[in-house]
Nucleic acid binder design. Structure first.
Lengths: 338, 338
DNA sequence: TTTTTTTATGTAATCTTTTGCTGTTTTTGG
DNA sequence: CCAAAAACAGCAAAAGATTACATAAAAAAA
């Protein structure tokens, strides 16, 4: 039998308005009354119900986050950042796992309609321009991470640049035959990373050799799997003569790729992407994305917009950072912890 | 200007009761009326508001999860499991990060008072018996993971057994001087794992040598850090003669321990605990806990109790599994992917 | 002491839905 | 064709808060 504001009001011999004022620190309440209400509430275990408050105030103090994948480190970092910011501001976080089956658009739209939250964060969700546009009609604060749309606040990392950095690192070492172990060509980050690779080659006047670009057959998770990395690297190792170096679309794929190299007893310098925790332990040279910062920034702009909805949308682009460990160096395998 | 049930009712020329019935598939509504309402609602972008529904129905279709640490794999797996089960049943998930600063008890109690959810899942949160008991007064469905209390449904893994398995593995190899790299002695899982170690020694009639039990100085996160693993292993390597083998309280700590061994150029067989993703890549022998299953089970029993609050509390204990990779074998370091 | 101002509290409308009850239609069966 | 049953839809009372407005009491100013 949960207590309501009426129970407390009755017990304290005051009206519900007074009880409400006490809990909201609003208006004037005599100290003695206030104390009585608070004591009673504590004894009876009362606190205003969120759902009733949400309805009456038209404000829920809750934000909702959409993510397509929960089991990766990229998401974890962002989640941590969002949580940290949110709990400092006394907001609750609702996580919705957008399932691969079923239309992502529909799932998101459904939640927006229901008005669960005061604001929404989209993580790694990619929509067409017209789809993004249609979210505008809900007229609700939205921040997007890892994609962008001019109508909403967005935070992303420059994928072209990241891949450019990696490729360029090899070019400066004098390599010209640089393989590219890539993923699903339909995925936006994949396209961008491919572009960075091409750009670096072009800048160095190295002709693009499409036979050096390989992907695995496993296309689950847009090809971001260990298995597909393994498959792709096998194809790369069949190229004759062997490429001098290789850039790779993700750390996870790189793990598979390393395995393939080990099996063949060959090793070519490799740089991957993401800088997951594993990367450090395996000694993977990789492109780091400031995920925690991205999460923080996205949450900040969301909260700011909740306060002041007229702010004009901001677009933040972070620069990736190349982290050199052992995997990019010659004969470097099997030296973890460097 | 979000639409309400009144707008739709007016537009369709019916009462709000009818609109409500349409959306709830409850009571009788003529097909033509139903279609009209649905079409109009779709056009006008209407859907019942969760907060108003929650209030009217006294049911929120939402569960809340409390976690002390978000950035580890243990949590991730469980989160994934909970999400999968929940979205199948159309429940929303709310995650509350219980902060280390401030009293965990207070933070949880606060949320329970506010009645955010229909049910609550506690992950890796340890309370005294009287504290657990005091949660009972909210009379709300609760499932606890990684701890247990007789009043609530609980799912845990047998920590004593896990540590016993690991220790026993070494004993059967003929080792008698087995070191124990442990963590904060106040933490419950740590105590239990210590007990399993002692139990295995006792069973084999090996006298307990307390000088073989070491912990690091870094006690953040209850000592479950790479740093504290590194520190503790340094102490172990100072023991003369060197222990023959070592069991370790977590994979994370083991990573630090491996580093310490590498620095000294020594290697003793090691088994750790958790089976995080990294374990596989680094070749760590470790004790696996079926986290996904635990998450699933906890969610199932929670949902069952929401349906039928009178069910008597269940306590599920999973058995851990020893996974042997290379780190437990002699001269085994630096052979990843095995 | 009277008037004015400030403080303290209550009344009642509001937020958006759900749902029990009631009354009217429509359908069914004899 | 009529009575009984079933289908359909509306009214109004919840659900548990917040808050604008009004008013009574207390404090300050005159």
């Amino acid at each position: 039998m949960p207590k309501t504001i009426y129970d407390i009001a009755q017990a304290a011999g005051v009206s519900i308005a007074t009880v409400s004022r006490v809990f909201n620190n609003k208006g004037q309440v005599k100290k003695s009354t206030r104390d009585k209400v608070l004591t009673l509430a504590d004894e009876m275990g009362y606190h205003p119900q969120v759902f009733a408050q949400g309805l009456a105030r038209k404000k829920k103090n809750s934000i909702m986050m959409f993510v397509p994948i929960m089991s990766n480190h990229f998401f974890m970092e962002i989640l941590g950042a969002i949580q940290d910011k949110l709990s400092a501001k006394n907001f609750e976080l609702n996580i919705v796992h957008v399932m691969a089956n079923g239309d992502a658009f529909d799932q998101v739209e459904y939640q927006l309609k229901r008005q669960w939250a005061d604001g929404y964060i989209f993580v790694s969700l990619h929509f067409s321009n017209s789809q993004w546009k249609s979210f505008e009609r809900f007229d609700v604060p939205i921040s997007v991470i890892d994609d962008s749309y001019h109508g909403f606040d967005s935070v992303a990392v420059d994928n072209v640049e990241g891949s450019f950095l990696a490729t360029n690192y090899f070019i400066r070492k004098g390599y010209t035959r640089i393989a590219n172990l890539t993923a699903a060509p339909t995925a936006i980050p994949v396209k961008e990373r491919l572009k960075g690779y091409e750009k670096a080659l072009e800048k160095a006047s190295i002709p693009l050799d499409k036979t050096l670009i390989k992907r695995g057959d496993d296309m689950s998770r847009d090809g971001f799997t260990e298995k597909s990395g393994y498959e792709a690297m096998k194809k790369i190792l069949d190229i004759k003569p062997l490429p001098e170096a290789c850039i790779c679309a993700s750390d996870i794929k790189a793990i598979g790729a390393l395995k393939a190299m080990e099996e063949k007893g060959v090793s070519i310098p490799l740089i991957s992407y993401d800088n997951l925790t594993i990367a450090k332990y395996v000694g993977l040279s990789t492109v780091h994305q400031p995920m925690y910062e991205m999460g923080t920034r996205a949450t900040e702009s969301l909260l700011a917009r909740i306060e002041k909805p007229t702010l004009s949308p901001s677009k933040t682009i972070y620069n990736p950072e190349l982290i050199i460990r052992s995997s990019s160096e010659l004969m470097s395998l099997y030296q973890p912890f460097k």
